[in-house]
């Protein structure tokens, strides 16, 4: 086989894998704080892309930096609003009730986006346009390199916040035992609210970054499943698991589609995720006893 093509496959797989990893970052955060997977995370990414791309940049014509600042504020408020209206009333409910509610939230957001922004998908010009970096015939979009850099940056930031700040300690305390945490004077509600805000900001940044590569449209919310899969392959509890899981998923998708069948691409990818769920549900980087659920 052609070495150039293989190199291109590796690079493209890495690029898409990092996008999955970026989306996965938001999942692990909420999971660590409240022990629930935010099934609406993909829709949060979509909302981020719409708010930044469709409203701020395209409709209002804001330049990149104010639009970015606006996005952070909007997404933080959005995350808190979602937590306040859809999560908080159910915080003592069973996990399965929360999951159904979050699923409904994702459905609500997708349909609202259609009503607010219309059914026509939109393109977005990234800071680097469609310029590509070419290494011996294999090409990668500058936008993808930008995504990889920011993902790693966010990963370090998340690691730092979680293990080296008081805030991180609070979050971890709440995750372990809400009641004890509140006895020790930690405002559990505020901590959870903050977690939602932060993970919604992460989703917003993901939306902003991937919109130029793909499109601004409701289809983006489907990427949420891939982010979820990345967490399962990596680990929900290990911060760097998201990125590693994402890259494995991206490379696997690329090579299985190239050498097995591109028709059954999504089926094969789901089979991999299911295989991981059955054989190693804690993920590659997780510890065995961490698996908990219903």
């Amino acid at each position: 086989m052609d070495i150039q093509i293989v190199m291109q496959q590796v690079i493209s797989g890495l690029a898409i894998g990092c996008i999955y990893g970026l989306i996965a970052l938001g999942y692990s955060l909420i999971f660590n704080a409240v022990d629930v997977v935010n099934l609406a995370q993909g829709s949060f990414v979509m909302v981020g892309a719409f708010v930044y791309g469709a409203s701020f940049v395209r409709s209002y014509g804001w330049p990149a930096f104010p639009a970015f600042a606006g996005l952070i504020i909007v997404m933080a408020v959005f995350g808190m609003v979602c937590e306040f209206f859809f999560y908080r009333p159910l915080r003592y409910a069973h996990v399965r009730t929360k999951l159904v509610a979050l699923l409904a939230l994702s459905m609500l957001l997708n349909n609202l986006a259609l009503i607010i922004w219309g059914p026509y998908p939109m393109g977005l010009e990234g800071p680097f346009g469609t310029k590509v970096l070419s290494i011996k015939g294999a090409t990668i979009l500058y936008q993808n390199i930008y995504i990889i850099a920011i993902t790693i940056l966010l990963l370090i930031l998340q690691f730092y916040i979680f293990f080296h700040t008081t805030l991180g300690k609070v979050l971890r305390a709440v995750a372990q035992d809400k009641d004890t945490a509140s006895l020790m004077g930690i405002e559990a509600n505020q901590a959870v609210s903050f977690t939602f805000a932060y993970s919604s900001i992460l989703a917003g940044i993901a939306g902003m970054l991937i919109a130029p590569v793909f499109t601004i449209g409701t289809g983006l919310s489907q990427l949420g499943f891939m982010g979820f899969g990345a967490c399962i392959i990596g680990s929900f509890t290990n911060v760097s698991g998201a990125l590693i899981g994402g890259i494995i998923l991206g490379l696997f998708e690329m090579f299985s589609a190239s050498y097995i069948s591109s028709l059954y691409k999504s089926a094969i990818v789901y089979l991999l995720i299911i295989a991981f769920l059955l054989m190693r549900p804690q993920g590659l980087l997780g510890k065995k006893e961490e698996v908990s659920g219903l």
């Binding site: 093509i5 291109q8 493209s12 797989g13 898409i16 289809g219 489907q222 990427l223 589609a257 190239s258």
Partner: peptide, 11 residues
């Protein structure tokens, strides 16, 4: 609804 077509394009 797919967003990534690189494997098919490389084929």
């Amino acid at each position: 609804g797919d967003v990534d077509f690189s494997s098919q394009l490389l084929n």
